[in-house]
């Protein structure tokens, strides 16, 4: 049966270059490490490091959260409440693993010590799809609700949830990060905008992005306060400087259909992926020299896709994943011998 299946697939869908990326060579060397998650086809995504060095991820289709010990390679998967269909996992200051219940309007966490799951339902029936979540330094959880067009704030001390709906329908709040002053910023996957949230009042300030057609999956904030974002809709990388108000964009190497998706800034270097291409490239951008370098992300002996969210570990490695091939991965960037 499987021979018939693979024979049919190989005959009808042999290797092609229809979505081939433009890979850019360069001097930086990286090493990939991968772990294949136990439950098949789970849509593994969003790996993140906890304080104890373990790595958590979610299986969105598998309705599960997983914990990996990167030293031993041991993995444990925890089934989540029915229909949570977790979009992401984030670790709170106490080491609890929080998930967003993207299909059942909830946010919850798993206490790894007890294995118990605590769930908070959204207080508004219109708040249907908690999406990406981050903690501020006070331990408050901030999260986006893409299709509900809201952002939320949850206080884990008392379970209190506050929600704010955006004025413009279809803005699709997506990625969210906290700046050095403790104010959240989020990006719009529905139109050309970024927003700053006043952490005290939840008042929203919109930053309009320059190009029509811009949609922004994710953003990250560099140490110097600059906001880096992917212009997913137009295949570009962008930077907004809140200090000067300047916004600048660069075409991504693989062009307008490259659909940049996940993004993280580590030690002043911007990393993102071009999810519209196959293979799915990991791209490095050095803001000082304004130069790119990119690599095709391998999955065992093959290539597929895609990274949907990436974060750094404390020691500066990148945690990425491939949602198609059930893998979470770690990228180590080699230190260059010559001082810069």
């Amino acid at each position: 049966m499987q021979d018939k299946l693979t024979g049919y697939l190989a005959a009808n869908f042999p290797p092609n270059t229809r979505r081939a990326p433009k890979l850019v060579s360069g001097p930086i060397q990286i090493t990939w490490k991968e772990w294949v998650n136990p439950q098949l086809g789970q849509r593994s995504r969003d790996p993140v490091e906890a304080q104890d060095g373990s790595i958590w991820w979610v299986g969105q289709f598998g309705n599960l959260m997983g914990r990996l010990d990167p030293k031993s390679g041991e993995m444990k998967e925890y089934q989540l409440p029915p229909n949570a269909m977790p979009h992401t996992v984030e670790i709170d200051p106490k080491g609890n693993a929080w998930f967003t219940g993207n299909k059942n309007g909830s946010v919850g966490y798993l206490d790894p010590k007890t294995g118990k799951t605590i769930v908070y339902k959204m207080p508004d029936p219109n708040a249907k799809d908690p999406h990406t979540l981050v903690f501020d330094k006070q331990g408050i959880a901030w999260f986006t609700l893409q299709n509900s067009n809201m952002i939320g704030r949850l206080n884990p001390e008392n379970g209190d949830i506050k929600l704010v709906t955006l004025n413009t329908p279809g803005s699709k709040p997506y990625g969210i990060k906290i700046d050095a002053e403790g104010n959240p910023w989020f990006s719009c996957n529905g139109r050309p905008c970024l927003y700053k949230v006043d952490a005290a009042t939840m008042a929203l300030t919109e930053i309009k992005l320059p190009l029509q057609g811009t949609t922004v999956r994710r953003l990250d904030i560099a140490e110097d306060g600059k906001i880096w974002y992917v212009n997913s809709g137009m295949g570009r990388l962008g930077m907004h400087d809140p200090k000067t108000g300047e916004t600048k964009e660069w075409p991504s190497p693989s062009g307008p259909r490259s659909h940049p998706y996940a993004i993280v800034v580590v030690d002043g270097i911007v990393w993102y992926n071009e999810s519209g291409m196959r293979p799915d490239p990991l791209v490095r951008f050095d803001p000082k020299t304004e130069t790119f370098q990119s690599w095709a992300i391998p999955s065992g002996n093959i290539y597929a896709g895609i990274i949907r969210h990436m974060r750094a570990t404390r020691d500066g490695t990148l945690l990425i994943h491939q949602s198609s091939t059930n893998r979470i991965m770690q990228v180590t960037v080699h230190k260059r011998a010559a001082a810069r």
Binding site: M1, Q2, L5, T6, G7, L9, A10, F13, P14, P15, N16, R19, E34, W35, V36, P38, L40, G41, G73, R278, P279, S299, G300, N301, I302, Y303, A304, S324, T325, N326, R327
Partner: peptide, 27 residues
């Protein structure tokens, strides 16, 4: 998709569905 050879398809779908006998779909 990117398209694959027979072996490539085998490896890709081995990450999604189980096909006895169990292939090398786990490290």
């Amino acid at each position: 998709s990117l398209g694959y050879t027979r072996d490539g398809w085998k490896e890709l779908i081995g990450t999604m569905i189980d096909r006895p006998p169990t292939p090398t779909c786990r490290t």
